[in-house]
Design a protein around this nucleic acid. Structure first.
Length: 413
RNA sequence: GGAGGGGUGGCCGAGCGGUCAAUGGCAGCAGACUGUAAAUCUGCCGACGAAUGUCUACGUUGGUUCGAAUCCAACCCCCUCCA
């Protein structure tokens, strides 16, 4: 990768956001011009919130805006009704329209945290591809655009290879996904002057189809840029934890849990995550990344607070950091921990508390957890699986812990 | 339409009339060691119950049998070959 001239690509390169680009020099020249250009990333509405798996993409749009260009957020209201088969070994159940619309509403909220929306030349804009896809005329579409797609070519895409190799059914419906995504790109190029589509590396094939369609059908010079798939140092896909996916919406995962997710980053990922998910200066990242042993924990805290600030705001991030500090470093029961209100009465079995606190899925699981020596009340191990809490003591609260990391406060209720 | 193969717990994958809540692996949870890390080792891993136990589960619905994930029938879905 030769040296790039534009602020945008220099930033993305330095921060390791780039996996592949259709034409790095051409894009660099475009980005180096004074006038802002528009770029987009599409997000399908498969869940009520986006999770950290989409965070690289969100950050790329943010970086684009910081570099003085215009981010377009494409909501996949239309394409979600098809379902992207890329790198999936089987089709997903189709979502109904009500579900999709509810998901869209949830997903939209996160973008306001990362981007500035408005009417200005570099303000972000949100559009929905259902607006132009749902009204397409089939025959006209096939004649105008369908003729530019080669089935031979599409069948050779890596993204559908898994499905074909495993002899899993790939329906014609799903097969059309890449065509519609390509059409989206051209549509956005025509109406918003979009020149670049970004996305995860799994979107490369779909993006190229769009770039080529632009050239063949509309004589447009379009660009594609993908980010690397983010895995942890030990090889796992990023973003899965005990509590499931790491959602970006506050109502799906609390800022405290979100902070904890980043705090528990593996050693080998600290530098990578600081670059991708925070805006600390490169020199500071290099310093933090070089810390050794237990000192790396300081870097992880900085990472956690910085990343949480972006998603949930500074106040929430600092509150989360403080809750964690009290809980883990002082061993105190920070009163900002999740609370479980109970009627103590004649005594409540500890296993019931665990279930109420969401630390166990069933009474049986809760009791096993106790038997396995994993439960503590105010830091005293519970040894009897049928132990009961009979009093909340003078403070009126008892700290309930499942393992070393999961804590809740029991309060009268 | 014809012939054949297949659908098992979150995933992969054994089982092929009783001893099967179902081997094994992965994932997950907990313990030990540590640094709220990784790796490693150990335990747990359907629900309910204090418990002998009860209930729900092997695509769906029926049947055979004292007894079925295992046999039979019909149906649904997937795959391969032929048309």
């Amino acid at each position: 990768m030769t040296s790039v001239k534009s602020d945008f690509l220099r930033l993305l390169t330095e921060r390791r956001y780039i996996h592949q680009c259709t034409d790095l020099e051409g894009l660099d020249a475009l980005a180096a011009e004074k006038a802002p250009f528009a770029a987009y990333i599409g997000f399908d509405a498969t869940a009520p919130s986006l999770h950290v798996g989409s965070l690289v993409q969100i950050m790329m749009l943010r970086r684009l805006q910081q570099a003085g260009h215009k981010p377009i957020v494409l909501m996949g209201g239309g394409t979600t009704r098809i379902g992207d088969p890329s790198f999936r070994d089987e089709s997903r159940p189709l979502l109904d329209d009500a579900r999709i619309n509810a998901n869209l509403a949830g997903i939209k909220r996160v973008f306001s945290k990362f981007l500035t929306f408005g009417d200005g030349p570099t303000d972000a804009v949100m559009v929905n591809n259902d607006d132009w896809l749902s009204g397409l005329n089939y025959i006209a579409f096939l004649r105008d655009y369908g003729r530019h797609f080669s089935v031979n070519r599409m069948l050779s895409q890596d993204s559908v290879k898994i499905r074909l190799d495993r002899e899993q059914n790939l329906s014609f419906l799903e097969f059309n996904y890449m065509i519609l995504q390509a059409y989206d790109f051209v549509e956005l190029a025509k109406t918003y002057g979009v020149r670049l589509q970004m996305g995860g590396s799994d979107q490369w094939g779909n993006i190229i189809q769009g770039v080529e369609l632009g050239r063949k059908a509309a004589d447009l010079q379009l660009y594609g840029l993908t980010s690397p798939l983010i895995t942890t140092a030990s090889g796992a896909k990023m973003g899965k934890t005990a509590n499931g996916a790491v959602w970006l919406n506050e109502d799906a995962r609390s800022p405290y849990d979100y902070w904890q997710f980043w705090r528990n980053t593996e050693d080998g990922d600290v530098g990578k995550f600081l670059r991708l998910f925070t805006e600390l200066p490169e020199a500071e990242v290099a310093r933090l990344e070089a810390l050794q042993g237990a000192e790396l924990n300081d870097a992880k805290k900085i990472l956690a607070t910085a990343a949480t600030t972006l998603a949930h705001g500074q106040d929430a991030a600092e509150a989360a950091a403080e809750t964690a500090r009290k809980t883990f470093e002082e061993g105190a029961a920070a009163d900002t921990l999740p609370k479980v209100a109970v009627e103590v009465g004649a005594g409540v079995p500890v296993y019931e508390l665990l279930v109420k606190a969401g630390m166990a899925a069933s009474n049986g699981e809760a009791r096993r957890l106790i038997k396995g020596n994993g439960v503590r009340l105010d830091d005293v191990a519970v040894t009897d699986e049928f132990a009961k809490v009979t009093t909340l003591g003078s403070t009126g609260t008892v700290k309930l812990s499942a393992g070393k990391k999961r804590h809740a406060l029991i309060v009268a209720g």
